[in-house]
């Protein structure tokens, strides 16, 4: 179901996601984001890397993604987040190299 796991995310499409990089003000953490099902269709990617200020939550991450990919709103209210392969609420604080998966429900059978 998922792509080969990769430890580093600097290879993956980070150029698209980081318009206001300001390393001097606060330390940044790197988050790997995985898109499943409809989320993949909407973003056109299976995964990408986000740089977030230290102390960011999963919600902050989602907000940033919604700016980058406005059409993600379609599923924003009906999806679950998984942090490092476990379901997690949006309030969870992220750490460097965390893996955040965006999982909309699928219904086929």
């Amino acid at each position: 179901m998922t792509e080969e796991p990769k430890d580093t995310c600097d290879v993956i499409g980070s150029q698209k996601t980081n318009p206001s990089r300001d390393k001097d003000l606060a330390p940044y953490i790197k988050i790997k984001v995985l898109f499943f099902a409809r989320a993949r269709d909407l973003t056109g990617s299976t995964e990408l890397c986000l740089e977030m200020p230290d102390g960011s939550t999963a919600r902050d991450c989602m907000n940033k993604l919604l700016i980058e990919f406005p059409n993600l709103r379609e599923i924003y209210n009906s999806m679950v987040l998984a942090l490092n392969e476990e379901y997690a609420p949006e309030s969870t604080i992220l750490r460097n190299k965390d893996e955040l998966a965006i999982i909309p429900p699928i219904s086929g059978g």
């Binding site: 409809r38 379609e74 599923i75 209210n77 009906s78 999806m79 679950v80 379901y87 909309p104 429900p105 699928i106 219904s107 086929g108 059978g109």
Partner: peptide, 20 residues
């Protein structure tokens, strides 16, 4: 609990539309 709000129908395709 997981999906309190159903996704819009466009977000939830069927096998007969999208293939499997």
């Amino acid at each position: 609990c997981l999906f309190p709000t159903p996704p819009p129908s466009a977000a939830c395709q069927r096998c007969s539309d999208s293939g499997v």
